[in-house]
Simulated scan of single mutants.
Amino acid sequence: MAFFASRFAGLLVGPGVLAGIVLVFLGGWSLLTPWLVASLALVAALMAVEHRLVRPWATQAQAALRGAVSAVEVKAFAGDKRALVGRLTMITLFALIVALMTAKPELNPFA
């Protein structure tokens, strides 16, 4: 179920980014608005974490689960610290992105 949810979420990224771009223009914000630049940097970080930490684990876990695996192997995949750190980092980055895009803080240290 988790792999299906991940795949489904991946399919929603494209329409989400497109909708975000449309809303930026409809909202009249500049693409250089500090909260938007920070959000885009966090999105890039989110994608990098997923690519480097989570995707390799998911690929290995899916391949293992397709074959006959023991409870020990499943436990080893479930307890992979690198993947866990990646998933927790992704959740944290996503929460920061949501907070930035909801609050739209000025983020101007010289104001």
Rank of each mutant, 00 (worst) to 15 (best):
I97H: 05
V43Y: 04
V69H: 12
R7C: 06
R52V: 10
G79V: 10
V98K: 00
L23G: 05
T59W: 05
A99F: 04
R66F: 00
A68N: 09
W57V: 11
M101L: 15
T89E: 10
I91Y: 10
V72Y: 13
R66G: 15
L96C: 15
I91A: 11
E106N: 15
K104H: 09
D80C: 13
W57R: 13
A58G: 14
L96T: 13
K104Y: 05
G10A: 10
G10S: 10
V98N: 01
D80L: 07
A38C: 12
L32D: 09
V13P: 08
L100P: 01
R82K: 10
L53Q: 04
F8E: 01
L65S: 11
I21S: 00
A61G: 07
G67K: 02
A111E: 02
I91H: 08
N108G: 10
L42P: 13
Q60W: 02
V24W: 00
L65M: 09
A99D: 06
F94M: 10
F8T: 09
M90L: 05
I91G: 06
A68S: 14
G16V: 01
S6G: 08
A45P: 08
G14C: 11
R82G: 15
A61C: 13
A45L: 14
V37W: 01
E73D: 09
L53R: 06
K81P: 13
V37K: 04
E106K: 15
A9R: 04
M1H: 11
V17D: 02
V85A: 12
T92I: 07
K81S: 15
A45W: 07
V98I: 00
F4Q: 09
F110W: 03
A63Y: 00
F77D: 09
A71S: 12
A103V: 02
I91S: 11
M1N: 11
F94G: 03
V85S: 08
R52N: 07
V74P: 08
L32G: 14
F94N: 02
S70A: 13
M47Q: 04
L18G: 11
T102N: 03
A45N: 11
A61W: 02
L23P: 05
I91Q: 12
A61P: 10
E106F: 01
F3N: 14
I97G: 13
V13I: 04
T59A: 15
T92F: 09
A68P: 03
R7E: 10
T33V: 03
I91V: 11
V37E: 01
L40F: 06
L88M: 11
A71Y: 11
P105K: 13
L40Q: 07
W35C: 10
L40P: 03
A63I: 05
A61N: 04
N108Q: 07
M101G: 15
